[in-house]
Write a protein that binds this DNA or RNA. Structure first.
Lengths: 345, 345
DNA sequence: CTGAAAGCGCTTACAG
DNA sequence: CTGAAAGCGCTTACAG
């Protein structure tokens, strides 16, 4: 058996080895193994037997080079251990698997630090395409580089202005607006919003939607022009900003986080100050992460179909990989307001 | 500029194009771009300018084929959207990035369904190595195939008997045993354990450790030979088994989950039955997932350094990729018992 | 139905 | 310091 003659001189078995043993040409082995026509049944079987016996495995790298296209896609995200993106990644991987593609996951830094490096890696590896999350407006030039190099890609969740490409997300404005109406419905008059980063268009639209419905209902948004309105999507940021707003804005009926992680920080601050949610104040978040409905105090939030987002994005990408080349499409997936303990008195 | 002459006939610029424009040979361009000696400073600069001007990007696929080794590693896990593995993945990706390697993430099914297919993919893509989580004993033959093909890999978290390879995990027995001592310390006399899958050696050792310390303290393990002792690592499984045990085993002082997700299910069951934790009964989990300390009722658990596990595993793998070939090593990372509300009266 | 030859885009000895 | 040639392991027209 090939491969058992000592560790120093070990070589993987190549297609040429199979051809030699089977007594046919490399071309015939290639055709047989790839199920192409023009190989007699008898030879086909013989080649398969020899290949199996030798433990032959095709070399995908050589295949890709020769065929001129790879069967891998790239997914760029801020952090796989962020459950939001982990769910998106799951959807992407699922569709990629179904298409026989591998998924390569890269981490961009929290401020898109490495996006350009990642894009270049995708290019160098000749990936079939890419999916980008956590985009901010400054990334437009990098995405344009990708377009110049004809690498198909889709924008997930966040959009970036001035780059015509497929996008998949939800209607953040509508989500924010529905949440605002609910907050008004339950009688709040003085509300503060602790949003996400100012350069995320998704975060921005959530805030705009929320504030538009709130003010149309005559509800006061206390920190409209305040620094607290935007910040990082972290629990500590939520807690710190909640404290700041509670110190500065007088009585508050409800505090809304730009996502559930921020809302968790808000709940931390409430615990620290002895504020009883929902008796003394209401709290809501965004995203419907699993941790938002663990334990006795469950969070009101807006559901975002994260896996579906990943799946739909991957489908868009595979359309393009398979040759579709129309203008950028937009898929707006359904969101849903979920009312739980923290806004129910 | 190359690449602007119409969409129908677009070609990426190759090293040969750079050579032609710069008026040197391909070999010289290669040496210059790869920082090899033997290229005059003047020529080196000229080549760089031409390459940049043309928008040249090296073709990693061709490089890999020629050099005979890839700069990608594979990571197999049950599900990236499982936060346990997402954290492990984060550690792996971090170290891979530092080494200039890409990380390819594959999903094995819940019962290792696709592990063999994934292993073959890793082989076919000529990956530099692989990291495997969620392994069960039936996977030994697949791992041996990898060894026969000389693909370096490491086993993460779960171990599988009979496969000599690097392993990184924690001392699950000791973790279980410490948890058992704590449960005994707070005065419990009748305890049930709702563990993970029977073919996971990590789950098994947690149970063995817990039960050994419990019985040495004279505490009764109610479901020692019961079907409820093992099951899937899901919230519903935890809840269902908690109900079963509460129905069948008489009074219970504490219910311990094989991981935090199961413990969450136990808490669900308690809520449904009106059992007040920790007043009426104590609950503990394992893993210290972030959701275990959200909200007012925080879970006692055993911390597992998940990112470190991923990092250490990747370091082991890179040792081997860089030529180390000693026998399988074992890294036991520190765990820590974390006592919170659910076992504090 | 089968094979000889060329080529995907690089890098690596080897000569000069 | 630079270049011509061979080759990594495949696949793809093209002949026979």
């Amino acid at each position: 058996m090939v491969g058992s003659e000592g560790p120093t001189s070990w070589k993987r078995v190549r297609l040429a080895d199979v051809a030699a043993v089977a007594g046919v040409s490399a071309a015939t082995v290639s055709n047989a193994l790839n199920g192409k026509p023009g190989v007699s049944a008898e030879v086909r079987v013989r080649i398969q037997v020899v290949a199996d016996g030798l433990g032959y495995r095709t070399n995908t790298v050589a295949q890709e080079l020769r065929r001129g296209h790879s069967r891998s896609i790239g997914l760029a995200l801020v952090d796989v251990s962020n459950p939001f993106y982990a769910d998106v990644a799951k959807g992407v991987i699922e569709v990629a698997d179904q298409n026989g593609f591998a998924t390569l996951i890269s981490h961009v830094g929290p401020e898109s630090e490495h996006l350009e490096v990642i894009a270049e890696t995708f290019l160098d590896r000749r990936l079939a395409g890419g999916l980008f999350t956590s985009l901010c407006n400054a990334d437009a030039s990098t995405l344009k580089l990708l377009q110049k190099q004809h690498l198909p890609f889709v924008k997930l969740v966040r959009d970036v202005a001035g780059v015509d490409a497929d996008w998949v997300g939800i209607d953040d404005f509508a989500g924010g607006s529905e949440l605002g109406n609910h907050i008004a419905d339950v009688g709040c008059r003085r509300v503060a919003f602790l949003g996400g980063p100012s350069d995320s268009n998704a975060s921005a639209m959530r805030g705009v939607g929320l504030r538009s419905s709130l003010s149309s209902r005559g509800v006061l948004v206390l920190n409209g022009s305040d620094a607290s309105i935007s910040g990082s999507l972290s629990r500590t940021s939520g807690s710190e900003r909640a404290h700041a707003v509670l110190d500065q804005c007088g009585p508050i009926d409800a505090l809304v986080g730009g996502n559930d992680v921020i809302a968790l920080g808000i709940l931390d601050a409430c615990r620290e100050r002895g504020i009883d949610v929902p008796r003394d104040m209401l709290v809501a978040g965004f995203d419907n992460m699993s941790f938002s409905h663990v334990g006795p105090l469950q969070l009101t939030t807006v559901n975002v179909p994260r896996e579906d987002l990943g799946r739909k994005g991957a489908c868009f990408l595979f359309d393009r990989i398979q040759g579709y080349s129309g203008p950028g499409r937009r898929a707006v997936l359904p969101h849903e307001l979920i009312i739980r303990d923290t806004t129910t008195r």
